[in-house]
């Protein structure tokens, strides 16, 4: 299933945040979206998943999502959005409870998702007992359990410390090698974009427009190898060069909110 964004435009109370975003996302591709603060990255993700209504423009799917997908567009949130009163397994189960599934399949899906995210031994733990990294793994497991066609990751590692972020990036690459879905990854971290994505969409300062799309010519499966490092570093520098001046202006801007 491909995804096509046509002229996505969004205003908050008259303030134009996204202006005419056209983008084709191919099935199975990982697209990162970066840009200076306030460029509408997260807004764009909200629109793609149907949580926000765009002021203008459309998001279309081309083709059918995979047959076993219970929730084709599935989010992973920056703040994890876990229910604190539910255990890890119950948080993951939440995504399945309103779907008529045989009990065995439900259990199997939950077990597989927990295994894939390294949470097998933590099924009964409560969120407050977990570190930030483990909490986001629960968020990931909950997203994977519905077998999404498009995984919408909204700054998924931003709330984590640098070391945990590093670990989760490795885990994400491993998961992406095994789980086939299209991925839209919003981040302000250039390193994440350069290491995790096939293509990086660079948005301009508000109103967000596509400035450039940078392709990374190392298959995601080989991203952890030593030979990938120079390529990733070069992409990272390129992205910074693209974004730097605007990031500085954006930083000095008075908040409108």
């Amino acid at each position: 299933m491909d995804l096509r964004l046509d002229g996505i435009t969004h205003r908050y109370d008259g303030l134009l945040v996204l202006d005419g975003i056209d983008l084709l996302i191919r099935d199975g591709e990982t697209v990162a979206i970066i840009g200076p603060s306030g460029c509408g990255k997260s807004t764009l993700l909200g629109i793609v998943g149907g949580l926000l209504r765009p002021s203008a423009g459309t998001v279309r799917t081309i083709g059918k999502p995979r047959a076993d997908s219970l929730n084709p567009f599935t989010y992973v949130f920056q703040d994890f959005a876990l229910l604190p009163w539910r255990s890890v397994a119950a948080n993951v189960a939440l995504a399945l409870e309103h779907h008529p599934l045989p009990r065995a399949e439900r259990q199997a899906r939950i077990k597989a998702a927990l295994g894939l995210t390294g949470l097998g031994d933590f099924a009964d733990a409560l969120p407050r007992q977990l570190s930030g990294g483990m909490r986001q793994r629960v968020g990931l497991a909950r997203a994977l359990v519905v077998r999404p066609a498009v995984l919408l990751l909204d700054e998924p590692l931003s709330a984590l410390d640098a070391q945990t972020r590093e670990l989760l990036m490795e885990d994400l690459l491993a998961i992406w090698a095994r789980e086939r879905s299209t991925r839209l990854y919003v981040t302000h971290n250039l390193d994440e974009a350069a290491r995790l994505a096939d293509r990086v969409v660079v948005l301009s300062r508000r109103p967000g427009r596509i400035r450039e799309i940078v392709s990374i010519d190392v298959p995601v499966a080989e991203r952890l190898s030593a030979s990938a490092l120079p390529v990733i570093a070069a992409v990272r520098d390129r992205l910074w060069a693209l974004i730097r001046d605007e990031a500085r202006v954006a930083e000095r801007e008075v908040q409108h909110a």
Partner: peptide, 14 residues
């Protein structure tokens, strides 16, 4: 928290 409600909506909870 509103984000929990948004999460529920994003998973298609009735």
């Amino acid at each position: 928290p509103r984000n929990l409600i948004r999460m529920g909506q994003s998973f298609g909870l009735p």
